[in-house]
Design a binder for these strands. Structure first.
Length: 578
DNA sequence: GCCGTTTTCGGCCCGACTGTTTTCAGTCG
């Protein structure tokens, strides 16, 4: 069966969950978990590798004989035998129990084995009956915290988009900076790594008065509940049950703590393993030389020195995912990640001609304010009737307007004649070729027929890439984060078609899209397909989402050289014909 | 189960906090 890497990783992860529940060796479980992560993050299709070159699979760091065998089974036989065997003795619903905060595999297994609890409903009933507190290792407090946790587990999808987390983060910073005991405050965790969704916020504070800082933390206006509070560590829930963790450290440990709390967990495991080989130990207080029983601190105040004493480069936070960063470091080939200031133009935006809120002149003025040197006006084509998409006649009129506008410009700023042209359900473009031929910049995108089969959608997109006038595919997978899954599409085929036809792909910077996602960005980079990071702005303010696209691009390991709109427009044009 | 310029066997990151415990297991990040 043709499965994408995410689907394969999900199955391997499920195997890890089931093994953990059944009390298997913890290192074996970790190996499967690690394998699942490696699969999910890998830029090439495992299905393709199984079909064409299975020996490549075990060459991948973290994938050995065991995981490779499970992958092959899954693709060739549609299922993994060991999962089926485990499911004969463990009902799949018990895995829901693990979603309750504070309830891990040991306690969940105890509940299943002694009280035959299989579902959240049964667990709730048992708690309310007072049965749970009778069990060994459980007591009244545990029972209550399980009851509280069930309510939280029910409120699924607690990860919020990065841009939303950013808003909350800024208000938290503002609140805590007003606290006199706070000497310095920084954000860490997946927020700092720029993950597209964030499950909690991690705050790190330098202070000699942790208790004062924590008191202040509890006074945050959106505070709902304090989960834990110790001497240096405190967790609260804020509005909508979102969790925020706070850690207070001393100046001399700040770098080590920041490194530690930024993660990712897997990145840190690798860093610590590396330190161990050098006879050193890393924890959140510093780096220590281990000499018998003696430990001498050799770094800790800054992140730079933490990495430096370990012989490692100061990795950008966005690349700390235990993906390729250690290989890059070893080869001295750490990419210099793209910065927002390197963007020279924005090649996807809408105006009042369709569903935008601003005119061409207003978009130009706003783009200039943001330091851009060119923009493309790319309104919708006629198929998007709800947005009053442009007919051939109207788009030609708009382009004449753009020509006239360009004549009024006295410097080098340039407005490009563009169109976001729909790829029709039956295949083919929404405007005739002779019209598209008049444009500077033709974006092709799928808006309708997103429920079609993988073959149909893939054919439509590949067909668009073969059209000589199309330059780029917008939001290539159609996903909306936390709202709509990507449509079924064979990205390997899309990448191949982009390469074969010398076309580009978009990284749509809208925080709800971020499409392509980081792993696809890395895949495009590897295949040397240029990406264009675009705002897809529907208003003046919409231009500012470019920053979110940059974060995602950095997570994909992209440099300015991988992103076409870091170049002047002339260079982009030349690329298509060179 | 994975991995290897100290290892093909014997390791596998490290500490805070909680609750149920009389010194520690489980969970979390």
């Amino acid at each position: 069966m043709d499965l994408d890497n995410v689907a394969i990783a999900t199955e391997i992860g499920k195997l890890a969950d089931l093994l953990e529940f059944s009390g298997a060796n913890s290192f074996k479980i970790r190996a499967y978990r690690n394998g699942a992560r490696v699969i999910k993050d890998f830029p090439d299709s495992f299905t393709t590798m199984v079909h064409n070159d299975p020996s490549k699979i075990t060459a991948i760091q973290g994938i050995g004989k065991g995981v490779a065998e499970k992958i092959t089974q899954l693709i060739e036989l549609d299922n993994i035998a060991e999962i089926d065997e485990l499911l004969e003795v463990i009902p799949v619903s018990v895995l829901d129990l693990l979603r309750i905060p504070g309830l891990g595999p040991k306690k969940a297994a105890a509940l299943y084995q002694t009280l035959s609890i299989q579902t959240l409903d049964q667990l709730q009933a048992a708690c309310e009956d007072g049965q749970v507190q009778e069990l060994k290792g459980f007591a009244a407090k545990t029972e209550q915290s399980i009851l509280d946790g069930i309510a939280i587990a029910a409120a699924a999808n607690s990860r919020i988009r990065w841009a939303s987390a950013d808003k909350l983060a800024q208000t938290l910073l503002e609140h805590l900076r007003a606290c006199p005991a706070v000497e310095r405050i920084e954000l860490a965790g997946s927020y700092r790594r720029g993950r597209e969704t964030v499950g909690d916020l991690d705050l790190l504070v330098i202070s000699t008065k942790p208790a004062d800082v924590m008191d202040c933390f509890a006074e945050f206006p959106e505070w709902e509940q304090t989960l834990v509070r110790g001497d240096t560590k405190m967790s609260i829930r804020v509005l909508n049950s979102f969790q925020v963790d706070l850690r207070v450290v001393q100046q001399e440990s700040f770098g080590a703590a920041w490194q530690y709390f930024t993660g990712s967990k897997d990145h840190n495991v690798a860093v610590r393993g590396h330190a161990k080989q050098l006879g050193m130990k890393v924890n959140e207080y510093g780096v220590f030389k281990v000499d018998g029983d003696e430990e001498i601190q050799v770094a800790g105040a800054t992140e730079q020195e933490v990495y430096e004493v370990l012989g490692l480069p100061h990795f950008a936070a966005e690349m700390r995912e235990a993906r390729e960063e250690f290989q890059w470091a070893e080869q001295g080939a750490l990419p210099e990640l793209i910065e927002l200031s390197e963007i020279q133009g924005d090649l996807h935006m809408h105006t009042t001609a369709t569903d935008g809120k601003a005119t061409i002149a207003e978009m130009v003025a706003a783009a200039r304010e943001r330091g851009l040197q060119y923009i493309a006006i790319t309104d919708h084509s006629q198929r998007v009737s709800i947005a009053r998409g442009l007919t051939a006649e109207r788009v030609v009129q708009q382009w004449e307007e753009v020509d006239r506008f360009n004549e009024t410009i006295e410097d080098d700023f340039r407005v490009l004649k563009g169109i976001e042209c729909d790829i029709l359900e039956a295949g083919g473009m929404d405007l005739p070729d002779e019209v598209l031929a008049l444009a500077d910049w033709v974006i092709a995108s799928v808006h309708f027929g997103q429920k079609q089969s993988r073959e149909q959608i893939t054919d439509r997109i590949v067909g668009a890439l073969e059209n000589p006038h199309v330059k780029i595919i917008a939001h290539p997978t159609g996903r909306l984060i936390n709202r709509r899954e990507a449509y079924q599409v064979d990205m390997d085929a899309v990448f191949q078609a982009a390469q074969d036809n010398r076309k580009m792909l978009e990284l749509n910077a809208n925080p709800a899209r971020l499409d392509l996602h980081d792993v696809h960005c890395a895949a495009a980079r590897k295949r040397e397909i240029p990406l264009v990071i675009s705002s897809d702005a529907h208003s003046v303010a919409g231009l500012d989402v470019m920053q979110y696209g940059i974060v995602q691009a950095r997570r994909g390991g992209l440099t300015a050289a991988n992103v076409a709109n870091t170049q002047p427009w002339e260079k982009i044009q030349q690329w298509f014909t060179s």
